[in-house]
Simulated assay, not measured.
Amino acid sequence: MTARFNHTIIAAKDTAEMAQFYRELLEANDLPAWGPFLNLSIGEGVMLQFAAPPMEFSPNHFAYLLDDAHFDCALATIRNRGYERWADPQRTRPGEINNEHDGRGVYLLDPAGHYLELITQPYL
């Protein structure tokens, strides 16, 4: 069997706020919640599980591949909500997007402080 990515747990002190953010930005769908997990589904059956960690956590980086129409909608949401955004992971180009890898990309932080990258073309 070829390995495929199935799910990840994303640490968040406010799981409801995080779920709402991801629903709006990634057009994620609700899944049944259980235990400490508030669950959403994105493309190809990947599950995002939000849970409050028992300790402090370091921010992670999550990159999401979007088609052009979804990127346009996500970018409009980012702008309308006034979220800070950058064209680069070093955050030296605020308010911009990039046109790298024959596509478009943008970086932002989610409500828990995790780094998000939205791209329209994979790197490889």
Rank of each mutant, 00 (worst) to 15 (best):
I10V: 12
F37I: 02
A33D: 15
R81K: 12
F50K: 02
M18H: 03
E56W: 04
F50G: 01
E17L: 13
E44R: 09
L108F: 08
I42R: 00
G35D: 04
K13G: 15
E96G: 08
S58F: 13
R23N: 08
H114Q: 01
G105D: 05
V106F: 08
I97G: 03
I42L: 02
M47P: 06
G95F: 04
H70R: 13
T15S: 03
G43M: 04
L65A: 07
E96W: 10
M55V: 15
A52C: 13
G35K: 05
N60Y: 12
L38T: 06
L108R: 02
N60L: 15
L25E: 03
L108Q: 04
N99V: 11
E17V: 11
A74C: 09
A28Q: 00
Q90L: 14
A76D: 14
A112E: 00
H61R: 02
F71Q: 01
L66V: 09
L108Y: 01
N99H: 15
D88A: 01
A87N: 05
N29A: 06
A69T: 14
A11D: 15
I42T: 06
E24N: 11
E27Q: 10
M18E: 07
F57T: 02
L26C: 05
R85L: 14
G103V: 09
M18Q: 12
D72A: 11
H114R: 02
N98R: 07
A76H: 15
E27Y: 03
D88N: 07
E44I: 04
L38I: 06
A11W: 11
F57A: 00
L75W: 06
C73E: 09
F50W: 10
A112L: 00
M47I: 11
D68S: 15
N60Q: 14
Q20H: 10
A33L: 06
D68P: 11
I9V: 15
D110E: 01
D68E: 15
